[in-house]
Structure formats: structure tokens, C-alpha cells
């Protein structure tokens, strides 16, 4: 797992290229790949491979460098994905047992496809969130900061409504 090149096609390739080469938000395709997995899961977004002609490839040596992170995210996705309606034990097995040497390689392959569906969905989310409405470098820099700030508030449970409430009490 994460030992061979991975090729992304179609709009996902276009988005990934754009995020790296034009918006310059991410440094490498692997960065987009890993972040996309997280964002896919965060926003519950999965996507199918696109068949249009554009291509972008994440190379094996990039995986080699980020293998630990990739495995970490993979297991995370496998633990948290609920799309297959598995029992908790089955999700744990999916995360920890299927990719073992003596594991079920067919299952593992399906698992990876699932993982990639999140990656592709995540790429779409990244593109939407980071690129939409941005034209200048300043736009992108601000977007990065804004997204982080909003996200930080979100995870702290500070929803828009809660913020309003806070303001009311002041």
C-alpha cells in the first residue's frame, strides 16, 4: 500500500494542478492528496474517478517520503467511514487487519478505492473552498487564513449562532 505511483485523472487532476501550480496553496501533489483525504472525510464527500483526459500523478517516491502520514490517514478513514454500514469491529478490522501481510488483499484493494474516493471528493472540496472567488495571491493567502480561523472556531464549538449569543450577552 502506498508503494506505487497513483494517477489522478480528469477534473481532479485539473484541480490538483491548479492548487499546486496556479494558486500555489500547496507545495506538492502529495500534499493535496493527503489534505484531500482529510477534507473528504471532514465534509463527507466522496467522488468517483473522472474520465476526462487531464492527468496528474503522485509518484511512488513522494509516497515513500510520506508513507507514515498516508498510512495514518488511511487507517483514520477506514475507522471513520460509515458509508458501508459496518459494525465497529468490522471497521477496526478494515483499518488494521485487511492490509496486513496475511490479510485479505481483495478487501484491502477495495478499502484503498474507498480511501481514494475520499481523496477525490476532498480535492473537489479543497478546490471549491480555496479557489472559488479568489484571483490574486492576496486572495489565496487570506482564504488560507480565513478557512483556518473559521475551522478553529468550528471545532471549538463556536458556531455562528453561538457567537451571536456571545455578543448578545456582552
Amino acid at each position: 500500500m502506498f508503494e506505487n505511483d497513483y494517477t489522478i485523472n480528469g477534473k481532479h487532476a485539473t484541480y490538483m494542478k491548479y492548487l499546486v501550480n496556479d494558486a500555489k496553496i500547496f507545495d506538492r501533489y502529495i500534499d493535496v492528496y493527503m489534505n484531500a483525504a482529510i477534507w473528504g472525510m471532514l465534509y463527507g464527500r466522496i467522488s468517483e474517478r473522472d474520465s476526462s483526459t487531464d492527468r496528474a500523478r503522485v509518484y511512488a517516491d513522494a509516497f515513500a517520503k510520506e508513507r507514515e502520514n498516508c498510512m495514518f490517514i488511511y487507517r483514520l478513514i477506514m475507522l471513520l467511514d460509515n458509508t458501508k454500514h459496518l459494525l465497529p469491529n468490522e471497521r477496526i478490522d478494515r483499518a488494521f487487519r485487511d492490509d496486513a501481510q496475511d490479510g485479505d488483499s481483495a478487501k484491502a484493494s477495495n478499502n484503498l478505492d474507498l480511501f481514494h474516493s475520499y481523496v477525490l471528493g476532498g480535492i473537489e472540496v479543497l478546490y471549491e473552498r480555496y479557489v472559488d472567488g479568489c484571483t490574486t495571491q492576496e486572495d489565496y493567502l487570506t482564504r488560507i487564513y480565513d478557512l483556518m480561523t473559521t475551522f478553529k472556531k468550528d471545532i471549538a464549538g463556536a458556531t455562528y449562532e453561538k457567537e451571536l449569543e456571545k455578543l448578545k450577552h456582552e
Binding site: 500555489k24 496553496i25 500547496f26 507545495d27 506538492r28 500534499d31 493527503m34 489534505n35 482529510i38 477534507w39 472525510m41 471532514l42 502520514n69 490517514i73 483514520l76 471513520l80 493567502l141 488560507i144 483556518m148 475551522f151 471545532i155
Partner: peptide
């Protein structure tokens, strides 16, 4: 700024999933 974002975004955004 960008370098730090690249380095930290994964950890940052993974927080709720973790």
C-alpha cells in the same frame, strides 16, 4: 507562511477526525 501551512494543514484539519 505557505511553507508553514503546507507543513501544518494536515495536522490542523485532521483535529476533529482524530
Amino acid at each position: 507562511y505557505l511553507k508553514e501551512f503546507n507543513y501544518g494543514s494536515l495536522q490542523f484539519y485532521a483535529q476533529p477526525l482524530l
